[in-house]
Design a protein around this nucleic acid. Structure first.
Lengths: 242, 242
DNA sequence: AAGTGGTCTAGACCACTGA
DNA sequence: CAGTGGTCTAGACCACTTT
């Protein structure tokens, strides 16, 4: 009757149940729109007490994997798209108009070694590549080069380039049923190549902020590799340290 | 018998008890070296159940204010000094030798408006100013300008400049009983002035990373204002996004 | 062995959301 | 009003650290 856990029985129950829930979310059993069952039902399903199930769920909330709302339910968390690095740019007020996205080039190709490694794919695996600009009005704020595993993102191989949205993550969710939950970024300062300088409207060798991002799903599997470049002069980053 | 809480009685018990504990930590009742009483004693002291006290304590752990170790006790958390932005510099391996710190100038003066505001002091309040270099061997990695409220940091006004340590936060704790718990930083990219270029050994107008940090104690009160500058070419920053 | 935090249970009752 | 998560209790027992 109670759900069987396959993980190491020496681990605490709340850890094993949490891992199992993450697997089920990754398998698509629940999405950001369909709530998980109430904690009482889940506790019964796993044959554990409500108190323990509450610990499982609040740990997953702390880990950024779920969101709970009193009276409504427990939902799979989607990445907050405003955490994009673009919110660190200085243009206008942060509550102002959203920068637009423009895919200039989309190719289906095979992954070079570094990108394949980042995405945890065999070298030469098929990927969808997007070259993209973010703009505010006429002004180009950033250049982006995006790589996606072709098997998970097949619908994007045929999508007309003008149909790509300003925000890609909601589109990944709608068209490809892939939800971005977390990401790691590495930021460095570089100087503009001739092409970058032309596209961004800055001098050759002007300092750029370069951000390499790896976006992941609930289970931590790599979904998207993205390199963004933006003029350093426009950049401010705030962080809270503990 | 049970400790009286002064905060708004409509708030949940675990919040009120948590606030009270933070006040007691800020008042110096416990330090990173003297453990808090065991959860059972604390629960009794406040007249609440152990389960509720456990929630209070684990919330404070999640907020970065306490550290718990099974079998040992519950301690006030100190800032992990390795979270300093210097760990983001590319020189050598991160586990290599620690950069040294050299106070070039120490003055006791009054706070200018922006610094006073950041430190939440009245304009013109007395502060201790430090101008400092961080070096690895002969090489200057970063310049720092530090401002500290003179009342809380009186012992530093007389300390010979050569007695300042490589890491200041442990010294704040030992000499001034001030523990840094959290900080916020704002990072921007600037270009080197003539003085900065000379001190850092880069070209005039070379890109610099400028980090403005405000360090706080458990209660969130401002302890230290610090502006650091380091050559942008040396800088890498990794972040995990949720 | 004594003392600490960690796991887990089995409830009662409250606060909020939506139909 | 039914159904959801949030608060709080009162325990038992386990795992780890220190003496």
């Amino acid at each position: 009757m109670t759900r069987t856990l396959r993980s190491d029985g020496r681990l605490p129950l709340h850890v094993r149940v949490g891992d199992d829930l993450v697997d089920r979310i990754a398998a698509g059993e629940w999405s950001p729109r369909t709530p998980l069952p109430p904690e009482r039902s889940l506790a019964e399903e796993y044959g554990i007490s409500v108190g323990t199930m509450r610990k499982v769920l609040s740990d997953l909330v702390a880990a950024g994997r779920l969101v709970r709302e009193q009276g409504r339910g427990t939902y799979v968390r989607r990445a907050d798209f405003s955490t994009s690095f673009l919110r660190f740019l200085r243009h206008g007020d942060p509550s102002g108009p959203l920068p637009t996205g423009h895919v200039l080039e989309r190719t289906v190709t095979t992954a070079e070694a570094p990108v394949a490694e980042a995405l945890d794919l065999p070298s030469g695996a098929p990927i969808v590549r997007l070259h993209r600009e973010r703009r505010l009005g006429d002004r180009v704020l950033a250049l982006e080069d995006i790589a996606l595993p072709a098997d998970r993102f097949a619908p994007l191989a045929d999508l007309p380039v003008e149909d790509f949205a300003d925000l890609l993550y909601p589109q990944y969710e709608e068209l490809c049923a892939q939800t971005v939950t977390t990401a790691s970024e590495v930021m460095t300062i570089t100087t503009a190549t001739a092409d970058e300088a032309r596209a961004l409207g800055v001098d050759r060798d002007a300092p750029l902020v370069r951000i390499e991002r790896l976006a992941r799903d609930v289970r931590g599997d790599a979904l998207e590799h993205r390199i963004s470049r933006t003029p350093a002069a426009d950049f401010t980053y705030r962080m809270e340290i503990q």
